[in-house]
């Protein structure tokens, strides 16, 4: 299991939710996971129903078996000052840079530098050790930028290493890339069974592979249950309207005769079912497209009542089962 788990996905696929559930799933049995947010949306705080996260690592959840999840919303400006402090001991010079607007420049005008800081901070957390030389976090899970940006985001240090051909920035950039390109890292893609997210996932994986970054798993989110037999549906829509009306009537939903309450339900119900069948068909196509990617794929169910904290734990349990099955399934 890689120690840095990067979770990407197209907007709207629930990537923050999956990242949070993954952190919970990994933090079982006394393990400690750090959940990192890089896009400044405070999505993690909302998921865990806590107040906005400050720029510090704080415990936000306890997983089953006594594990702990810490969370950190990385603030690029603070990260830069930290970084300056850590590497160059620039107390007052750092503040002077800030006054001059250099920090603004670094974090907003040249937004790529922001990515340098965000990836740098995450890798620092991965490598951090305590006094006994043990890793402080067993896992770092990153709620990363969306599929369209993920390769550039992770690869930004390569670019920096190319720009600054030597010196401390060059060395730091290379150190980050070493972590990101190693088996210590896995980049997962969250998708839905819809055409655009699946297409973007395929494109994202191709880009990641071209950049020699480690591709992890495909996580299909919000999978709907199949509630009706399509074949039976087709027959029913044709010939069995009367029978369906009678069945509705038997179930206590009113009269089955022409204009009866049950009879008037038949058409809307069949229409909804036809839409459903169409969607199932589209989903089947998308599953086939995903299968071509030749990656381990996890499916997570759609939670009918929307997502709350209980739902998050449920998704974590599902992920844990997947992870467990995989561990048991083979040592390869």
């Amino acid at each position: 299991m890689s120690r840095l788990q990067v979770v990407s996905g197209k907007g709207g696929t629930g990537k923050t939710t999956v990242a949070a559930a993954l952190a919970l799933a990994l933090a079982t049995e006394g393990k400690r996971a750090l959940l990192v947010e890089v896009e400044g949306r405070q999505g993690i705080a909302q998921l865990f129903e806590t107040e906005a996260l400050p720029y510090e690592e704080r415990k936000i959840a306890v997983a089953s078996g006594g594990g702990e999840v810490y969370a950190l919303a990385i603030d690029a400006e603070r990260a830069l000052l930290d970084y300056l402090q850590m590497f160059y001991k620039l107390g007052s010079a750092g503040r002077a840079l800030k006054k001059l607007g250099a920090i603004d420049f670094a974090t907003t005008i040249a937004p790529g530098l922001r990515d340098v800081l965000l990836t740098g901070k995450a890798c620092e957390a991965v490598r951090r050790r305590d006094k006994k030389n043990a890793y402080v976090y067993d896992y770092v899970v990153m709620d990363a930028p969306p599929t369209g940006r993920i390769t550039k985001f992770l690869n930004v240090n390569d670019e920096v290493a190319g720009l600054a051909k030597f010196g401390p920035i060059h060395n730091q950039a290379q150190a980050v890339m070493r972590v990101l390109k190693s088996p210590e890292t896995a980049v997962h893609f969250v998708t839905l069974l819809e055409e655009m997210p699946v297409q973007e996932t395929a494109d994202g994986i191709a880009e990641l592979r071209a950049a020699e970054l480690p591709v992890g798993k495909v996580i299909v989110n919000m999978v709907r249950p199949q509630l009706v037999d399509e074949q039976a549906l087709r027959t029913a829509a044709g010939e069995q309207r009367t029978e369906v009306a009678r069945a509705l009537s038997r179930a206590g939903l009113g009269g089955a005769g022409r204009g009866g309450v049950a009879e008037r339900l038949v058409e809307p119900l069949l229409e909804q079912a036809a839409e459903h069948a169409q969607r199932v068909e589209l989903e089947r196509e998308q599953r086939a497209a995903l299968a071509q990617l030749d990656l381990t794929t996890y499916e997570l169910p759609l939670l009918g009542e929307g997502l709350d904290l209980a739902g998050l734990y449920r998704l974590a349990a599902e992920l844990r089962a997947h992870l467990g099955a995989e561990r048991a399934g083979g040592t390869a």
Binding site: P225, L227, V228, D229, A232, L233, T235, A236, Q240, E243, V244, R246, A247, L248, A251, P268, L269, L270, Q272, A273, H276, G304
Partner: peptide, 16 residues
């Protein structure tokens, strides 16, 4: 078949 189908239709509707 009709009973099951109808039940399926109703479950779909409930989901909707």
């Amino acid at each position: 078949g009709v009973e099951q189908l109808t039940a399926g239709l109703l479950r779909l509707h409930a989901e909707r």
